[in-house]
Every structure is written in structure tokens, then in C-alpha cells.
């Protein structure tokens, strides 16, 4: 009876990215993502060696697996809302801060989407907190420019109405 969990732990699981790259990881790492665990439970009924397809790019899946591998034995810290500081290292620890320090913003947002898709709440929180740090203190114009977002065409009346509505939170006047 006692050896059963050990056998499960040592079992290897194959996960494939949307680009066709196959990763072989330990069962415990794979099951850190609830969705993957459910998929494993489902597929193991039919075939033991089946590869589980995930709708994630290879680079994103690789990064997610790195997170799962580290945190399967290291409980991630809960991130307070709102963030008391933009220095994430003080909140989540050095490893997580370094992990989420991706230089490519697309990767950050891909990680958010991946964590949401795979139902990995700590990773979702970490990536969202990083995104929040990035946009904190940015003006709406700066955000538009940063993300290449197009403002909707508004009539002058609509714009005025919105500015009036937001007056309470923009230091006494429209920016």
C-alpha cells in the first residue's frame, strides 16, 4: 500500500506543446496544474503512454513546467491585494521574482493566459501581479502607447462626460 504513491510520483508524463514539441516530466510536476491532472486521470484510463496535448507554445510550456517543477516542493507565497510595493521580490521571494522577470511582455501575457488555461492559481497571481506592477503609475496615454492600443473614437460630449465621471480619481481634474 505504501509504495503506491511512490510509483505514481516516479511516473513520467508526456506533454506536447501546440507546436508539437513533446516534454517528458515527472508526474508531480505535471499534476501541479489541475487541468493536466484531470487530463492525465482521463487519458490514463485509456492508454498509459499517451501524450497529452496542450494548447501552449513550446517556450511558454517550458516556462510553465519550470514553475511547476520548482513549486511542487516549495509552497508559493500568497500575494496581497492590493500590492503593498512594486518590488515583487519583497513579496514573493527571489526565485519567483527572478522567474517572472521576463524581458518579453508577450511572454508575460502568454504566461497569464497559460496559467489561467491550466488553472495554476499561484502562477496566475504572480504573473498578474507582475503585469499590475508594470502598469502602475502609467498614465492612460502611456498605457495606450506601450500596448499599441487604439482609443475608441468618442464624440467630444462623450469624452467630456467620461472626464467628469473620473474627476474624483484624477487629482481634481482631467489629465
Amino acid at each position: 500500500m505504501e509504495t503506491a504513491p511512490m510509483e505514481t510520483e516516479q511516473r513520467l508524463v508526456k506533454l506536447s506543446s501546440s507546436q508539437g514539441d513533446v516534454f517528458e516530466v515527472e508526474f508531480g510536476t505535471a499534476c501541479y496544474a489541475d487541468v493536466v491532472k484531470q487530463m492525465i486521470d482521463f487519458t490514463s484510463e485509456s492508454s498509459d503512454a499517451e501524450t497529452i496535448p496542450l494548447n501552449l507554445k513550446t517556450t511558454v510550456l517550458e516556462k510553465v513546467l519550470q514553475y511547476c517543477d520548482y513549486h511542487r516542493d516549495n509552497e508559493p507565497k500568497e500575494i496581497p491585494k492590493p500590492l503593498p510595493t512594486t518590488n515583487l521580490g519583497e513579496i514573493v521571494g527571489d526565485w519567483d521574482a527572478a522567474f517572472i522577470n521576463v524581458d518579453d511582455e508577450n511572454m508575460l501575457y502568454e504566461l497569464i493566459l497559460a496559467a489561467n488555461y491550466l488553472d495554476i492559481k499561484p502562477l496566475l497571481d504572480l504573473a498578474c501581479a507582475k503585469a499590475a506592477c508594470a502598469i502602475k503609475h502609467m498614465t492612460p496615454d502611456a498605457i495606450r502607447e506601450h500596448f499599441n492600443l487604439q482609443p475608441e473614437q468618442m464624440t467630444p460630449e462623450e469624452e467630456q462626460e467620461m472626464l467628469e465621471e473620473l474627476k474624483w480619481c484624477t487629482d481634481g481634474g482631467a489629465a
Binding site: 500590492l83 493566459l113 489561467n116 501581479a129 503585469a131 492600443l149 467620461m162 480619481c169
Partner: peptide, 22 residues
Amino acid sequence: DVAHIVLAFLPTKDSAPLSRVN
């Protein structure tokens, strides 16, 4: 749902002005 998680990490005074983005 996910965007709201991002916003929840910001205090009200920082998240409210984002409504002017688009």
C-alpha cells in the same frame, strides 16, 4: 476574469484611471 485579477493588485486610485485607456 483574468484582467480583474490584474486590476485587483492595484489600489483603487491606480486602477480607476485605466478606464480612460479605451
